[in-house]
């Protein structure tokens, strides 16, 4: 089964690395992101960090293609304007008012996956994430942790090469947070590229391979996590890591 899955992923065009070249985003002439240039490499776990309002969520939406840059270029390796093989999990996932299984099936149907294969994928996803007992439950009535687990499972079932996560644990208790982190690590082990925002330093240390640090809409540090946590180059990052309030 795993072999078939990997085969399918290999068959899709490689979308990574994703290159941003001088990307900016402005609303009514008000710049919110500017001069972002970086390359998101395949198979890495990138944590996007920064204070509230630094532009982390916007950055993620811009990469994912929910908003378009007003300056610069966003280039997927596959040459697609908006890469197909990507998914995103939101801070508060929107689950459809239907069963858990139907929530998993929905994006697969959108991708045009045929009925039998779709049912197969849904069953496999339910099994893999321990959701099988909840399959027929209405998704909206699950606990917060279960809902986020379903949102991640839904993203996984879409077989993305890149997965964007926007503060996926900010509304969860510690045990649910651990479950979600374990899922994310599992995805990474399978070779999925992870781009995630968090303001939880402990979580960032646990999950990061690379770090991008945003400050007031600018990317001021970007590199391997070890180096960032050991010795940040900018005073803003140093203050952030020290737990000082910065803005």
């Amino acid at each position: 089964m795993m072999a078939a899955r990997d085969l399918a992923r290999d068959a899709a065009p490689q979308i990574l690395p994703l290159r941003l070249e001088g990307v900016g985003y402005a609303v009514r002439g008000q710049p919110l992101l500017h001069g972002l240039s970086l390359t998101i490499r395949s198979g890495r776990r990138l944590m996007v960090m920064g204070a509230n309002g630094a532009g982390k969520s916007l950055f993620l939406r811009l990469c994912h293609g929910l908003i378009e840059p007003t300056a610069g270029r966003r280039l997927w390796a596959s040459g697609e304007a908006r890469a197909e093989a990507q998914a995103m999990v939101f801070q508060r996932p929107v689950l459809l008012r239907r069963s858990v299984a139907a929530n998993l099936a929905y994006p697969l149907a959108l991708k045009g996956m045929a009925g039998p294969e779709r049912r197969d994928t849904v069953a496999r996803t339910l099994d893999r994430f321990g959701l099988a007992p909840l399959a027929d439950r209405p998704a909206r009535l699950l606990s917060g942790g279960e809902q986020q687990r379903l949102a991640l499972a839904r993203a996984w079932a879409m077989r993305p090469q890149a997965l964007f996560l926007d503060e996926p644990c900010s509304a969860l208790d510690p045990s649910a947070t651990l479950t979600i982190e374990a899922m994310i690590e599992g995805f990474a082990t399978e070779g999925m590229t992870i781009v995630m925002t968090t303001h939880d330093l402990g979580q960032a240390r646990r999950l990061a391979e690379d770090v991008a640090f945003l400050h007031r809409g600018r990317l001021i540090e970007h590199g391997p996590a070890d180096a960032f946590f050991a010795g940040p180059e900018t005073p803003e990052a140093r203050a952030f890591l020290a737990g000082d309030l910065i803005w």
């Binding site: 459809l96 994006p107 991708k111």
Partner: peptide
Amino acid sequence: EQLRSLGASRLRAAPTLLWD
């Protein structure tokens, strides 16, 4: 945002929203 992320066009979103 969620529907766009999942790959639904506006046209495809209409029946989804009606059902929900």
